[in-house]
Simulated assay, not measured.
Amino acid sequence: MNEIKVLAISGSLRQKSSNTALMNAIIGLAPENMKFTIYGGLGDLPHFNPDLDVDEGPASVRELRTQLREADGVLLCTPEYGNGVPGVLKNALDWLVSTTVFMNKPTAVISASPSPMGGDKAHASLLLTLKMIHAKIVDRGILIIPYITMKMNKGGAITDNELKQELLSVLQELEQACFLKQEETGSA
């Protein structure tokens, strides 16, 4: 199969974030043809200001947009803060509203939390924003994971077999959507 480039984004800046650990575990489950780039600039983006969004915007914003433009698909893993999307992730998405870099981009969206709700409010809000910027949310590529800390060990490995199978399905769906997108655009 063709190589598929996926941009992986964690919605958390916390060094020991369970969502970042989950994102890394998912990358470890991916087939060899899926090549991941982990976006590490979430904390470097300036606060969104339309007055700064001229001539491609600040350097950190240009870098985010370039990485998205070059990716065949996107994997988002995010916690929930204060019943919503973490501010740094929402800020990044706000910088993308005036562009088409997310348009029809196959995207898998995972929210995980140590709570019983799994980050459902952040997940719902994130999906609304992604749909507004025309991301292509992958069928069966969305997942809410409650009690994430009970499903991974301290080393970041997934210990819950049911979760592992769900994540493999998400990866398969994302891979297929990216492959179809490549065929449509002739980049396969």
Rank of each mutant, 00 (worst) to 15 (best):
G87F: 09
V85T: 10
L22D: 00
S98C: 11
R140S: 15
N33R: 15
G40A: 10
D120F: 13
M150W: 04
L75D: 00
Q165A: 13
D53E: 14
R140L: 13
E166I: 01
A92I: 09
G119N: 02
L96N: 14
V170Y: 01
Q176S: 08
L42C: 11
T66W: 07
F179G: 06
D160E: 12
A30K: 08
E175F: 00
H123V: 01
S10V: 03
K131D: 15
A135H: 01
E63T: 13
Q176H: 05
F179N: 07
C77V: 15
I133Y: 02
T100N: 15
K181S: 14
Q176Y: 05
Q67V: 00
A177V: 00
M34N: 10
N83T: 02
K35E: 14
D44V: 06
M23L: 15
L68N: 02
A135V: 05
D160N: 15
L89H: 04
L29C: 12
K90G: 10
P31W: 02
G156V: 08
M117R: 14
I148W: 04
L168E: 12
I26S: 12
G155N: 12
P31G: 10
I27W: 03
L29A: 09
S113C: 12
L143H: 12
D55K: 05
I4M: 15
C178F: 00
G141H: 01
E56R: 11
L171W: 02
V109F: 00
G186Y: 05
L128H: 07
S111D: 07
L126I: 03
F102D: 01
T149A: 05
N91W: 09
G82Q: 08
K151M: 09
K16C: 04
M23T: 06
D53T: 11
Q182D: 02
F36P: 06
A135R: 01
T37A: 08
E173Q: 13
I110V: 13
G57Y: 02
E80T: 00
K121Y: 04
K181P: 05
L171K: 07
P146I: 06
T129C: 02
G141T: 01
E162G: 07
T107Y: 03
S187K: 10
I27D: 10
Y147S: 09
K105Y: 04
E173R: 13
M117P: 11
N24E: 12
V109A: 00
L128C: 03
I38P: 02
K154E: 10
S115N: 13
K5L: 13
